[in-house]
Structure formats: C-alpha cells, structure tokens
Write a protein that binds this DNA or RNA. Structure first.
Lengths: 222, 222
DNA sequence: ATGCATTTTTATAGACGTATAGAATCTATA
DNA sequence: TATAGATTCTATACGTCTATAAAAATGCAT
C-alpha cells in the first residue's frame, strides 16, 4: 500500500485533511472579513463561524494578518492568468476587451467573499503582502492598458482616449460590482458582464473605423 | 454693542469659535479615517493629528461613531443638491449626464478625505446614521437613473441599456476615482471628469439618433 | 487496546481602545 | 485683576483583542 518510505500514505492523508480544514478556516475568515472589514472583525468572530475556540485558529495561521494575506491571495488568484491568456490569444482588441471584462467579473460569482476582501481590504496588508498583491494587480492593469493601447493604435478605438485613465476607470467600475450586486442574484453575473461589456466597448469604439459596431441596433428606424 | 440680552455678543463669539474648532476636529478625524479606515483608527490617532489628548476629543463628540457620522454627512453634503439641480435644469439628457458626472467628481478635489470616508466607511455607521446617509445616496442614484431613462425614452441613448445596472456601474466608476486618483494631482479632477464623461456618454449614446455625436473625431480619415 | 501524532481546548498574559469624572488651565470680559 | 465659563488635561475604569503555552481530547496505525 505504502508508496514509499519518504512519503507514507499516512502523511498524504494528513496533509489532505489538513489542507481541507485549513480551507474551511480561510473560508470562514473570508466571509467575516467580507462582511465586517478586516479591522472590524475579531478572531473570535471567525472562530464563531466555525464553532471553534478563538485560540484554535492559531493552529492554522500565525496571525490575523496572515489570514488576510491568504484570503487576498486567493481573491486575486486566477485573474492574472486569465487576463494574460486573453491578451496572448486571438481576437481583435475590441473582442479582447470584452473577454477581459467577462473574465474579470466571473469570480464575482464563484469566489464572492474572497474577491470582496481582495478589493476592499488588501490595503490593510503589511508591506510584504501588499507588495506581492500589488504586483499582481499591476499585471492585470497592464493587460487592460495593453488592449486599449493596441485598439487605439489599430484605429478600432477612439484616438483621443487617455489609456491609463480609461483603464483605471474601467477597472474601478468592474471592481465596484462586487459591492453592489446583491448576493442573492448569483446567476446574473453573466448579465452584468454583458451589459458592462457593451457599455465600455461602445464607449471606446471608434465609430468612424467601426460603422458596423453600433452597440445595440435601434429597434425602430428614425 | 450687545444686540440683545438673549443672544449676547460673547455667545456669538463663543459659538463661532466652537464651530471652527469642531471643524478642525472633524477634519482630523476625516483624514485619519480616510487613510486607515474607520475601524483601523483609534481616537488616539485622531488626537495625535491635533496635538490634543485622546480624552479631549470627547468634548466635541460623544463617541467615535458620532465622528464618523459627521464626516460622512459632510462627505455626501452637496451631492444631492447639485444633482437634483442639474436634473431640474435645462439641457438634453446627454448634456445632463455629462453635467452630473462633473458635479459628482468635483468634490474629489475640494473635500477629498470626507468623500473618501463617505464612499469607503459609511457602511460601518450604525442603523440610524446609515439610514440617513442611505437616503441621500438613493436620491443621487435616482438622478442618474432618471437621466438615463429619459435619454432612452427620447431616443438619444441606446434602447437596450439596463437603466439600473448602468446607473450602478457608472456610479461605481465615478466613486472609484477617489481611491485611485493620486492625492498630489489635485488639479486634474477636471481632466478626469472630461475623460470619464466622454467614455460614459459615448457608451450610452444612440449612434443612430445622434450621428453627430461621434465621441472624438478621428484624426485621419480611413 | 496501545501509543503516537494531530487537533482542539483552557487559561491567561499583556497590549490597546473607548469613554467618563473631576481637576487644572485658559480666555474674555467686567 | 477677578470671575465665570469654556476648553483641555490627568487619571482611570473597564472591556476587548491578539497571541502564547500547556493540558486535554481526538483520531489513527499497528
């Protein structure tokens, strides 16, 4: 049964059990952080969610801030990879922008609490963690900038747009979704993505170069 | 000298002095709340900014939360009035939308800390205060919704747009500005307003009904 | 069933945070 | 300058919070 002596079955079991439990702990932390904010939550409140004693949490992380770092880490995880894959893939800048928006909003449904904490609480991370997370944020920002820059360069987007400002505004809009979309309408993230995609693409498209891309065909002719 | 016995000059002086001082106290609270968040700031930290003792603050407000309420109040003050005035005034829906955006962003320069606290920390107000502030927020939201609704009705904006979703997205975008615009470029709020105004208007305009409103004329013909 | 490793609990140190009470100090005016 | 009232200070009660240490309980392999 035992595969080898260096990595016995019991250790595998132990690790997977440990990891599963650690997952549940971080999950609880994420939900309380999301609701009350980092400084607004006590370790007691996290323990309450789990039916654990406050001190027991410290078996899984060395400090409250480490828990925040774990939550933020998982909150941003996947964003960068998805964005860079879209950038590297095929498609026009306008198509890529739409795809970026969809990919950026998708985790709103699947990892709600984690994303919310990443967006709202990452600023409370201490230097080390904040820099790590900051690097990832900047890579996402660069993806959006790159697509906009390319779109302007090839004439498909408005020449006058300020690339950095537009990127910040669009990301600000997308990141706001986590704070206003009601938790109960989980299914509608796709709808939000479609709506915001239309809004942003229509806002950036160059109507001269793209006469066909009328955001939504008017129902009645004038 | 004395105007009357009920309201002696000394009392006038006293009140104006008191109000000025109270203003400075709330100002300090706003700056620390803005930087560290409500739960992240101690009353000690506020007192430090003023060179006052921690306990002395309680001469001016009865609790830390009351200070937050004051800051939030001042943070939202003027928004509603400005927005409703624009709505009631003259202009096409597209013009009014541009004006709303400009008015919504203007306080980013003049009341930076207050606005930031209003945006980021109001959720920590207790019931009474949160409801008061919430009512004002909703009036602002209704202004944006109303303008968009009217624009769609008169054909100047895209028929397909979801009014509520669009309003939330636009406000989310505008409210994000306070968190990413660097504090040192105070002068550029107007530029941000112009850029975001163009983006949103272009995103909502109905190109069929408004062939003239090409967001930015292309420099070179294709 | 026994013994070992893992997980959780109890107990608590020690820092920090809000708020109150009453004394001390300051300021404006008579 | 003496006084009344306004403002700030000292001292502190009292609760809450993070984190540690050691004991207890639990689960697991033999």
């Amino acid at each position: 049964m035992r595969m080898n002596t260096l990595w016995p079955r019991s250790r595998l079991l132990r690790n997977s059990r440990l990891l599963r439990r650690a997952d549940a702990i971080v999950d609880a932390a994420a939900s309380v952080f999301a609701e009350r904010g980092y400084h607004g939550t006590s370790t007691q409140a996290i323990a309450d969610v789990l039916g654990l004693r406050q001190a027991s949490l410290y078996y899984y992380f060395p400090s409250k801030e480490a828990a925040l770092a774990l939550v933020c880490e998982r909150g941003v995880d996947g964003f960068v990879e998805a964005a860079e894959a879209i950038l590297a893939g095929a498609g026009t800048p306008l198509e890529k922008l739409t795809a970026l928006i969809g990919a950026h909003l998708a985790p709103n449904a699947s990892k709600r609490d984690y994303v919310k904490v990443f967006i709202n609480e990452r600023r409370y991370l201490a230097d080390a963690g904040r820099r790590r997370i900051g690097r990832k944020s900047r890579r996402i920002e660069r993806c959006f900038e790159e697509v906009i820059r390319t779109g302007i360069a090839d004439g498909s987007m408005r020449a006058g747009a300020d690339v950095r400002l537009t990127m910040l505004a669009v990301l600000g809009m997308l990141n706001s979704v986590i704070n206003w979309r009601a938790a109960d309408q989980e299914a509608s993230v796709a709808r939000v993505a479609r709506e915001l995609g239309q809004l942003v693409v229509a806002g950036l498209v160059n109507p001269v170069a793209n006469p066909a891309v009328k955001p939504v065909p008017a129902r009645k002719r004038a």
